[in-house]
């Protein structure tokens, strides 16, 4: 069995938090958007493509979390085999990075799911609501982007990346 130092283990926890919470938010959001989309498609088959777009919007938070998790795993040496053994301090920074993208993704995903679900309902009633629905749904993306940026910055200036 490979010996893992505490810092690296903490980075692994950070990776788990990143993908876990971001995925949770994204999943809940996508569930809500898809639930609305299924209702819309049941009434109007033409809504399928638009329903897919709104459901897919909520995927982004999980992608941010997944990216940060992969970066953490690679640069902590857990993936790729080149274990450099992170210090405990850097491991804590990794948890911060994971928490930043994870919790931001959780809130953003749930918020986006609510708006996307409502937008699907609005579009099926009035076709002209599509672009406005996309704009309102995209607004909720910003929190996830903040979390993602801060996670990257933490990794860069915390000595994990670069």
């Amino acid at each position: 069995m490979v010996e893992i130092v505490l810092g690296t283990a903490l980075a692994a926890v950070g990776a788990g938090v990143a993908v876990g919470f971001a995925g949770l938010g994204s999943g809940l959001g996508q569930g809500m958007a898809a639930s609305g989309a299924v209702g819309a498609v049941a009434e109007d088959g033409d809504m399928f493509s638009r329903g897919i777009i709104f459901s897919a919007l909520c995927e982004t938070q999980a992608i941010y979390g997944f990216l940060i998790a992969i970066l953490l795993l690679v640069f902590s040496g857990l993936l790729g085999g080149g274990s450099k053994g992170l210090s405990t301090a850097v491991g804590i920074v990794a948890i911060g990075a994971g928490a930043a993208v994870g919790f931001a993704g959780l809130g953003s995903g749930m918020g986006q799911g609510i708006v996307a679900g409502a937008s699907v309902g609005a579009i099926v009633e009035n076709d002209e609501m599509f672009s406005r629905g996309i704009i309102f749904s995209a607004l909720c993306e910003t929190q996830a982007i903040y979390g993602f940026l801060i996670a990257i910055l933490l990794m860069v200036f915390g000595g994990i990346l670069g």
């Binding site: 809500m32 639930s35 989309a37 209702g39 819309a40 009434e43 679900g117 409502a118 099926v124």
Partner: peptide, 18 residues
């Protein structure tokens, strides 16, 4: 709040279509 909203999303889309 999600739990309050979730059961309504599917029926809402259906009735709004109608």
């Amino acid at each position: 709040p999600i739990l309050d909203i979730f059961p309504y999303l599917n029926p809402i889309a259906k009735v709004r279509a109608r």
